[in-house]
Amino acid sequence: MLSESARMSSAQEAAYRIQYPNSKQRAAKIIALDKTSARIVDEVSRLPWHGAAFFASLSFAPKGSPGDGKDESLQAWLSDLAGRTMELVAEVEASDFVVVLTAAGEDARAISIIADACKLHNKSLVGLVVPREGASDDAVNASLNYLRPFTRMLVVANGVDYVEAMLRALRA
């Protein structure tokens, strides 16, 4: 007689796996940290997604701007691809995870405030370094060094096609 493990791991039994959804739609926020990665985010955002929101830039709030009364160090504004402005902290709070993109060697300093917002709301932050034409290894290293302290997962991709692949895999 077959053991339970032998029966249950068969192809025949696989057909009886419950076909109900096992997860709800997740809210992914994808944020470009620089102009080069913004172009990639713009391109990727045109594909069909399940609730992912794409942002092309981050700006810091001047004193006295909306959001007064909150931690001023976290006052920043995201611009989506339609030009609308959203408050960073609110967007992060409403997310399930955040992905930041930077092109190798570009200015990635904006990640620190995004990371603070993620920390405030216990959200996972993934960093993706994408290629930039003519960028040297030193440029890649500089990006890695900047992103490393802030991310749970850091990826260096050789091609921009990985951006879509990763977001699809994460059900963005």
């Binding site: 493990s5 249950m8 068969s10 192809a11 696989a14 995870f97 992905v99 895999a169």
Partner: peptide, 19 residues
């Protein structure tokens, strides 16, 4: 092996650390 002969990856829920 408990995943079955071929894992049904349409049902998985990967996270960032699965990169």
């Amino acid at each position: 092996e408990s995943m079955g002969p071929i894992c049904d990856r349409t049902k998985e829920n990967l996270v960032g650390t699965d990169n």
